[in-house]
C-alpha cells in the first residue's frame, strides 16, 4: 500500500532522514518506534509533503513524492499531527466538517460515529475547539482526519501527555479504525500500546530504520530495545 524507499529529508542544512525504507500493507497497523529526534515525525511529514522529500514514496503504485499536500491527502492518506492542531475559534462540529474533503461523497465515517465513540465530543459539539482539554483535542484531531475517509492514516504520538484512561480510549479508537479496513502508521513512544495493537514495528535511529519485526520478535530482542528504545 505504502512503499517508502531511500527517503531523504533536510531541515536547512541538517540531514534529518538518511535513507528511510519501509512499507505498510493493506489493512496493517505498523508502528514507528524510536527515541525523540531520530526522524519519526519528519518521516510522516515528508510523506505528507509538509517537508520536501527526496526519494521514492509509492502509494498504491503511484509516486506521491513531490505532490502537494492536498493532492496527497486526496489520494487517500490521512495525517494526525502530534501538536493537536485543532482550528481554535471554530466549534467541534465545524472542525469535523472541515475534515470532509468532498461533501458529495459518503465515506465510511459519519459525524455520529465520532460522537458515539466519544460522547464528550457530542456534548461539546458547539463549543469552541480551542477550549477543549488536551485529550478532547486529540480525539477531535483524529476524528477530523477520519471524516476525510482516508485509507491509510498516519498518527503522530496520539497518547503523548494524556491521562491513562484517555490513552485507553485512543487505543480503542485505533482498533476501531483498523476494524473498518483503514491501515495505520503509528508513531508512538509508549511501547506497551505499540506492542499490543501493531502487526509490525519498525525501530528508527539516527535518520534510518535499524530494526523491523513483529511485536513478539521485538519483545524477545532485548538488545534492540536497550540500544534504541529504552532511555
Amino acid at each position: 500500500m505504502l512503499e517508502v524507499k531511500d527517503l531523504h529529508a533536510y531541515y536547512g542544512k541538517s540531514h534529518i532522514l538518511q535513507g528511510v525504507t519501509f512499507n505498510v500493507k493493506e489493512g496493517e497497523i505498523v508502528s514507528l518506534l524510536g527515541r525523540n529526534g531520530v526522524g519519526r515525525s519528519t518521516t510522516i511529514k515528508s510523506i505528507m509533503g509538509e517537508v520536501a522529500p527526496q526519494g521514492s514514496i509509492l502509494y498504491r503504485g503511484r509516486q506521491i513524492a513531490g505532490l502537494k499536500a492536498h493532492e496527497i491527502a486526496r489520494c487517500g492518506l490521512g495525517y494526525v499531527p502530534e501538536n493537536r492542531d485543532v482550528f481554535p475559534g471554530m466549534t467541534v462540529r465545524q472542525n469535523l466538517l472541515l475534515g470532509i474533503k468532498d461533501m458529495k461523497v459518503e465515506g465510511r465515517w459519519k459525524m455520529d460515529d465520532m460522537f458515539d465513540m466519544f460522547p464528550n465530543l457530542r456534548n461539546r459539539a458547539d463549543v469552541d475547539a480551542g477550549v477543549l482539554s488536551g485529550g478532547e483535542q486529540q480525539m477531535l484531531t483524529m476524528c477530523r482526519t477520519l471524516m476525510g475517509d482516508p485509507d491509510l492514516i498516519m498518527i503522530d504520538e496520539p497518547t503523548e501527555g494524556l491521562a491513562p484512561k484517555i490513552v485507553e480510549q485512543v487505543g480503542d479508537l485505533l482498533s476501531e479504525i483498523a476494524r473498518r479496513g483503514v491501515s495505520i502508521l503509528l508513531v508512538e513512544q509508549k511501547l506497551a500500546i505499540a506492542l499490543k495493537i501493531s502487526h509490525r514495528l519498525y525501530v528508527m535511529g539516527h535518520g534510518h530504520m535499524v530494526y523491523e519485526g513483529t511485536p513478539d520478535e521485538l519483545k524477545a530482542n532485548e538488545q534492540i530495545r536497550k540500544e534504541w528504545l529504552e532511555v
Partner: peptide, 14 residues
C-alpha cells in the same frame, strides 16, 4: 490561520 493543516485535510489552499 492554519494553511498547512488545512492542506493536509485535502483542501486546495493555493
Amino acid at each position: 490561520t492554519h494553511p498547512n493543516m488545512t492542506a493536509m485535510l485535502g483542501h486546495n489552499v493555493p
